[in-house]
Structures are given as C-alpha cells and as structure tokens.
C-alpha cells in the first residue's frame, strides 16, 4: 500500500489495554473481530454486528463505542480499552463487585459491554438516578436479567464511589 492511499489490507498500531499492538488487518475487519481474533481478547463479545445490542462495547480514546461499527483500520493510533484491561487496572472493580453481589448478570454475554457503558455513565455522573441509569444502558441488551438487578448494581457501585470519594478527601 502507498502512504495515505487505498489498501485492502491495512497496517494498524493500536494501544490496547495499555499495550502497543501492531497487526496487518483486512480493511473490512471491524474492531471487535480485531480484538477477538487478532489480539485474542475474547472478553468483548459479538452479539449483532449491526450496532444494536451493545455486547461489543469498548472504550476508544475515552469514548464508549460499538466495536462492530468501527473498523480496525480506523483505530490505528487510537487507545482502546476492553473489559480485560479495565479489570486488570481496577477501573471496573466497584461495578464488578456490585454486579456479582447483586447477581446483575446471568449468562454474562452482555456483561462486559454493560459494565463499560455503566462506567461511562458513572464517569459523567457519580450519582445517577434509576431513570438515568436505565436510559444510559438502554442501548445494551440483556436478555436474562430483566435489567432491574443491573440498575440496582449500578446504583450500588455509585454509592460505593461516592463513599470512597468522601472518605478519601471529603470535608466531613
């Protein structure tokens, strides 16, 4: 391929979970397949491949995105975080603990995407209402739980976060 020209195979370098990953990928390869097949990160799941179900949700340059609606080629130079990395660095810990305690997952297939979406909400708003939680996660399908336990768990995690902030540097 010529520099800045068309190619059916594209060389990409992506910072995935803090590690530099370089691969040559088909131009048509979407980000989820790149993560799962080229990098071996199977925690991100493929649920619909047309941007509806949210199972493939990952973080790209700080935004939550649908991994199936972004090409791997587009991620060249980007920073991508998946459930594996966000578990290893503890970012999701409060949510994960709450999900386990509240049984906010059954089959677990939607869970990584759900957690990443929930974390996005808590990053914007530390104390969301139940309605805000429901609205924010409404692009992530869960077929098992009926959602209530997930909403409870996000609330629980939000409580944990607020408490931690207060204990860490609160004025009381």
């Amino acid at each position: 391929m010529s520099e800045n020209g068309f190619a059916h195979e594209v060389d990409v370098t992506v910072i995935v979970n803090g590690e530099r990953v370089s691969r040559r990928v088909d131009a048509r390869r979407h980000l989820v397949d790149f993560l799962r097949l080229d990098v071996g990160l199977t925690g991100t799941h493929t649920g619909c491949e047309h941007g509806v179900c949210g199972a493939c949700t990952v973080q790209v340059n700080g935004d939550v995105v649908r991994g199936c609606l972004m090409l791997a080629a587009q991620a060249d130079g980007a920073e991508v975080w998946t459930v594996e990395g966000l578990s290893d660095n503890g970012s999701l810990d409060a949510l994960q603990k709450a999900f386990v305690e509240r049984n906010a997952l059954q089959c677990g297939f939607c869970t990584p995407g759900m957690l990443i979406t929930a974390a996005d909400l808590l990053a914007r708003d530390a104390k969301p209402s139940r309605e805000e939680i429901r609205e924010h996660i409404s692009g992530n399908y869960c077929r098992c739980t009926g959602y209530e336990a997930i909403v409870d768990a996000v609330e629980m995690a939000a409580g944990t976060r607020a408490g931690a902030t207060q204990a860490g540097g609160g004025s009381q």
Binding site: R36, T42, G43, H45, T46, E84, L105, T111
Partner: peptide, 19 residues
C-alpha cells in the same frame, strides 16, 4: 450467596464456543 462463577464473567473471562 453469590454465584461462584460470576466473577469470571464480569471480568470477561468466560469461555463461550466462539472463544
């Protein structure tokens, strides 16, 4: 009591057929 296999699923460490 919490399900013993829940933690692996919240960390994306489940193993489904496609994995």
């Amino acid at each position: 009591v919490p399900r013993p296999n829940a933690r692996k699923l919240v960390e994306g460490r489940g193993q489904y057929v496609d994995d």
